[in-house]
Nucleic acid binder design. Structure first.
Lengths: 251, 251
DNA sequence: AGTACATTGCGTCATAATAACACATTAATG
DNA sequence: CATTAATGTGTTATTATGACGCAATGTACT
């Protein structure tokens, strides 16, 4: 796969890549889809290169699609990372040898790369992590348990989370991360996780329902050993209408 | 200048550029610094290329600096633009001939370019627009009167404004755009211009002073034929403290 | 079967923030 | 010196927010 790209590197934008932070929500945890190649000892964000005949947004969709099998989800460019040394010594001679890439062709990879960061919000329940090769591990990892990452991927991930935190105030992010039917406590946990702070149960209910984007269903979710919470779904129409204006505007 | 870059194009990131939206505020107008080369009939955003040994943020500072002479100002990356056709036919053969660039070397310029957008907030009164060549015009233009721009620069400008609008809710942008001493009505006009809506004078005063970042000075500004408004300045310390938490948080 | 328990659902109240508005003050102008 | 068009200050009704109390629910345990 990588070798194909190297062999045809004139078909790709030089020195430019895409990295995706794919968020999912499961078991009351905000999770991130990470990748590890067998021989490496660090994890990385799913990424890819940009075909010269593709918009960068399209290339990002391709990256997302190849790892998750889904498309049509929420995908958003959030920042571009371009420190000079960010990928220095990532593809060194040893690595190239291992990958059986000729030194001449490897130069394309060894040059300085700028990467465009996208983050995706996906419905965890619909995703089956999809390794593109036998030597690759793809896994959902709790955002609080993320191990050491290659290059500046930790910085990219952090920036994605910061952006998500800000966006949360501007739009109901829950729509993209939760399954069709969900409970208010689940939605609250999502908010608490992203904002990294506790919220009052009763006030949260009042505020979130006042927005008018939730539809109360005639179903309950049996929830272990306790009172069964009601199920809700998003009212897509009202959701879209609210999005136009944003939520909390100060002025 | 451009020719120097072409002649040494191996010193620059290929297919990648920087464009700056430089905002200033004057005469109650939000202004944008635009550039026109003599022979062109369209204006453009000040831009530049990225030396292979410079961080992209550093390269952006260089662009800003070369046009305004200032540095140490507020500069922020807001988006990256990478549609396939965004610079198609920008440097065609005719243009290359005019610029006396050999066709072989011109190929570097004719390829597809992705551009990273930065916006800057500068104190209008401290800036003297600075043409880098004799055949270049640099001018402040009211953001409502911006003429047709080259390529997708209109889209870039619009996106910068959108971002500014959102940031306004998160931080007191006024600090960067106004001179050291300013009046409340001036600050309000700035807010109204960016948000594109009228605000109530009295409520604005209350809210902005309640934030606690303004210092009332013992001076007044003689303001034409009416009551002289009081002058204020920002309290940098409190301003920085407020920035940490952001301003209007909903949750 | 009945009780304990953790969780959910709904309501209350004091306080703070907001929007809408009235009126006094100021400085240049004719 | 009155007029005028601004600025500065205050008032009030309404709404939003934060911090709670308490009843309802569904499972598990005795």
């Amino acid at each position: 796969m990588l070798k194909d790209i190297i062999d045809n590197n004139e078909n790709y934008q030089p020195g430019l890549s895409i990295d995706c932070v794919i968020f999912g929500f499961h078991d009351n945890q905000l999770k991130v889809l990470l990748i590890k190649v067998e021989r490496a000892n660090k994890w990385s964000l799913p990424g890819g290169f940009i075909p010269v005949d593709q918009d960068i947004d399209t290339a990002a969709i391709t990256v997302l699609n190849s790892r998750t099998g889904v498309d049509g989800v929420f995908l958003r460019q959030f920042a571009t990372f371009g420190k000079v040394d960010r990928n220095k010594q990532h593809f060194d001679k040893k690595t190239l040898e291992y990958l059986k890439i000729e030194e001449a062709k490897g130069k394309w990879l060894m040059r300085r790369f700028v990467t465009i960061g996208y983050y995706a919000l996906v419905d965890f329940s619909k995703i089956l992590p999809n390794p593109t090769g036998r030597h690759e591990i793809v896994e959902w990892i709790d955002h609080k348990e993320v191990p050491e990452l290659i290059l500046d991927h930790r910085e990219i991930l952090d920036k994605a989370l910061d952006t998500l935190r800000i966006e949360l105030n501007l739009m109901p992010v829950g729509y993209n991360l939760l399954p069709e039917k969900f409970t208010i406590p689940e939605l609250q946990k999502l908010y608490e996780t992203i904002l990294d702070k506790k919220l009052d149960r009763r006030n949260f209910l009042r505020k979130i329902t006042n927005i008018g984007i939730l539809t109360k269903l005639d179903e309950k979710k049996s929830n272990g050993a306790h009172k069964a919470p009601n199920l809700y779904s998003f009212d897509k129409e009202k959701y879209d209408e609210v999005l136009k204006n944003g939520l909390n505007q100060g002025w």
